[in-house]
Nucleic acid binder design. Structure first.
Lengths: 214, 214
DNA sequence: AGCAGAACGGAATGTTCTGTTCCACTGCTA
DNA sequence: TAGCAGTGGAACAGAACATTCCGTTCTGCT
């Protein structure tokens, strides 16, 4: 059976393929705005019925998991992409900008806790942490990052930027960039005094990932 | 009828007065953690029954409103308190630290949208904005704040810090302080380049306050 | 041309969750 | 000591939600 090109527009096959994407896009938008949003909201936003959704995912949790895992993979992808950049500081900055622009942090952090994670997600998360470590280490070695900043502080930075949200998505992105710029200016060079408090410990900001104790 | 001292510990009167505070404290904790939390969670946390709650507030919305308005008043209080500080930069920093420590920003911003605001709250909000303007203006005049930062950028800062949250409240406060310090270091002096994008417009970050259009 | 079934929209269903009310009880207060 | 303000917690009604089901459409293959 020929496929007429897998992403072609014609026929039922194309419709289905387009729905695949529409559902994922809608789910991203809806669940990023409110992680507890009802499934029906996703269907409505995607312009499809409930059955189109349940044909693809056994349940809500599976959709959430998929969304989160996709975000995690994107994270790793971006982190690997900037490793080629020779300027360590620029690599870090570009990476953070990309994560902030794509709203990947919310995807991987705020969605956690709404589903039970796979083992593969666990190992991917470890891999991601390793990449972040290296990125920060390089920036330190280049002397461009203030010394009392640790890799897990980047979690603080991303969490801060992801918190900015206004109804218009494009404006949201602009404001987040502005927030990131303020943080970066504070991160570079040595500030007036040392940063207060113990630095965030590894995994401390990912508490939503911990298995529910109830 | 004598009162034995209005906050005294003895008897039914004292019990009631203590419950007043317990309910407000519990409500703050619960609703800050999740603005959509059920009322029963507040009662449980406060260690009281439902009737103790409904005797004081006609409904959930009234409790939320009260919480938010209290936060707004606290905001104004803190802003007025630092006006006496002669060092403009220190005034701004101390103010931000106090707001972050007391988690007042979440109270006034994240709770909005869960109730319909009073007119008095509207005027208080305007008053608060005016105080922020003056605080930033002073810091600018003293040359301690980078020139392309506007008053509404403080909303960005507070939103960022308020987003940091871990299960332990004290640790949360430490991490927020750290986040604030990074932002302040970036805010002081002129950074590497100008801040990107149009600065946040007045009221742009308070969109939750806008009346629901549905 | 004609059939088998993949894909779909959306209403129906059963269940959980929540705001609010109600009632019997307690122990100050006057 | 009589009365009632104050209370705990169960009961209730209705909203919200994930999931299922059924009738329909239209493609892809023979």
């Amino acid at each position: 059976m020929d496929d007429h090109g897998s992403t072609g527009l014609a026929g039922r096959r194309g419709q289905a393929a387009r729905n695949d994407a529409a559902i994922l896009d809608a789910a991203r938008e809806v669940f990023l705005a409110d992680p507890k949003a009802p499934v029906a909201a996703v269907a409505e936003r995607a312009g499809v019925g409930m059955s189109a959704l349940y044909r693809r995912y056994p349940g809500k949790e599976d959709l959430l998991r998929r969304l989160c895992h996709d975000g995690l993979r994107r994270w790793i992808e971006e982190a690997e992409a900037v490793e080629a950049e020779p300027d360590a500081w620029k690599a870090l900055v570009v990476f953070l900008e990309r994560i902030v622009d794509a709203d990947v942090h919310s995807l991987t952090v705020h969605l956690a806790g709404t589903f039970t994670p796979t083992e593969e997600m666990g190992s991917d998360a470890r891999r991601a942490a390793g990449l972040m470590d290296r990125l920060v280490e390089r920036a330190h070695a280049a002397g461009r990052l203030r010394r009392d900043v640790v890799a897990d502080d980047m979690g603080l930075v991303l969490e801060s930027c992801a918190a900015i949200r206004v109804p218009d998505p494009e404006r949201t992105q602009e404001l987040r960039r502005r927030c990131l710029a303020m943080l970066l200016a504070g991160l570079a060079g040595d500030g007036a005094g040392p940063l207060p408090g113990p630095a965030p410990a590894p995994g401390e900001l990912n508490w939503r990932w911990r298995r529910r104790s109830g």
